[in-house]
Computed example of a mutant assay.
Amino acid sequence: MNKSHILIVEDDLDIRDLLTAFLEEKGFIASACASAEKAKPILAGCDVDLVLLDVMLPGADGFEFCRILRLSEGPRIIMLTALNEPVDKVVGLELGADDYVSKPFDLRELLARIRAVLRRPALTAGHPRSVDTEPVLRFSGFAFYPQRRFLRSPTGLRVPLTGAEADLLLVFCKNARRVLSREELINLSRGEGFAIAPRSVDLLVSRLRRKLAGEDPLAELIRTIRTDGYAFQPEVSAE
């Protein structure tokens, strides 16, 4: 079984060494560096499955580096932040991070979040897979290939999705026309007992809604049900 490769981008040497030793003990391949600039050659030289990305970095901060990574296909991202303001966590998710963990963090919680994010298949140049061999979910002209987080618009263009957005879309597709509460959306997409603020759920829904609207801002594939949650409107067929 191939070991997952995790890159730690953290300028605090003690935290970097702690995480490297911990992840290697848990069976991962761990690389570490102190800045976004030093991370770039590592990412270019080998396959990295997930980046643990500190927000407060010298030079380009974690938010900026997250934005750069999301301009193209890349590894999954978990932000490490000592900033406890909800808006900072929202910014990370808005830029495309798959998850965030606040410092000081519990190593067991971090491990659980890493494993949860790694369960989402990544689409990378080093792991190609033909969409013709994958199951596809179709709705309103869209074609969604959940195994590799691949969404094609009605006009044939690729719609980029983060891991969290793809998980959410899959839950909606499997529960089309059913009202789902925020708690149900968390449990179905992340697992029961996963701690995430309702505001973050609303943010993910908002981001996904914008991507599905595309060139038609009036399209409402995800309907907000006041006080109850959300409902995915279109019919979904599976092939």
Results as ranks from 00 to 15, higher is better:
residue 76 R to Y: 08
residue 20 T to L: 02
residue 161 L to Q: 03
residue 156 G to P: 03
residue 9 V to I: 15
residue 52 L to F: 00
residue 190 R to W: 14
residue 34 A to M: 02
residue 52 L to C: 02
residue 58 P to M: 02
residue 153 S to V: 10
residue 35 S to G: 12
residue 89 K to V: 14
residue 169 L to V: 01
residue 89 K to T: 14
residue 197 A to Q: 14
residue 153 S to D: 11
residue 116 A to S: 10
residue 36 A to M: 10
residue 128 P to K: 09
residue 64 E to G: 06
residue 216 D to R: 04
residue 2 N to C: 15
residue 231 A to V: 15
residue 96 G to I: 03
residue 196 I to A: 07
residue 196 I to S: 06
residue 88 D to W: 02
residue 71 L to E: 06
residue 77 I to H: 08
residue 134 E to I: 09
residue 47 D to E: 13
residue 213 A to Y: 03
residue 169 L to A: 06
residue 103 K to N: 08
residue 199 R to W: 08
residue 37 E to D: 13
residue 64 E to K: 14
residue 162 T to H: 02
residue 78 I to S: 01
residue 103 K to L: 12
residue 204 L to D: 12
residue 77 I to T: 07
residue 7 L to Q: 11
residue 176 A to Y: 01
residue 109 E to K: 12
residue 229 G to I: 06
residue 119 R to W: 10
residue 228 D to N: 15
residue 169 L to C: 04
residue 187 N to W: 09
residue 56 M to D: 11
residue 78 I to N: 00
residue 71 L to G: 07
residue 44 A to F: 03
residue 216 D to I: 06
residue 6 I to T: 05
residue 122 A to W: 03
residue 70 R to H: 14
residue 9 V to G: 14
residue 108 R to L: 07
residue 193 G to C: 13
residue 221 L to K: 02
residue 205 V to R: 05
residue 172 F to L: 09
residue 55 V to E: 07
residue 95 L to G: 11
residue 233 Q to C: 06
residue 20 T to V: 01
residue 48 V to A: 05
residue 174 K to C: 00
residue 203 L to D: 08
residue 148 R to S: 05
residue 231 A to T: 13
residue 116 A to I: 01
residue 60 A to P: 14
residue 83 L to V: 01
residue 116 A to L: 10
residue 164 A to E: 00
residue 185 L to C: 14
residue 37 E to R: 09
residue 220 E to M: 13
residue 64 E to P: 11
residue 103 K to H: 01
residue 18 L to E: 13
residue 198 P to F: 10
residue 152 R to G: 02
residue 236 V to I: 12
residue 29 I to N: 06
residue 53 L to T: 00
residue 67 R to D: 14
residue 74 G to E: 05
residue 140 S to C: 13
residue 208 L to N: 07
residue 41 P to E: 04
residue 15 I to A: 14
residue 56 M to F: 00
residue 229 G to S: 11
residue 186 I to W: 14
residue 204 L to Y: 12
residue 9 V to L: 13
residue 150 F to S: 09
residue 114 I to D: 07
residue 224 T to W: 04
residue 65 F to V: 04
residue 160 P to C: 01
residue 158 R to S: 05
residue 112 A to H: 01
residue 192 E to K: 01
residue 35 S to D: 12
residue 166 A to E: 00
residue 129 R to Y: 03
residue 102 S to P: 01
residue 65 F to I: 09
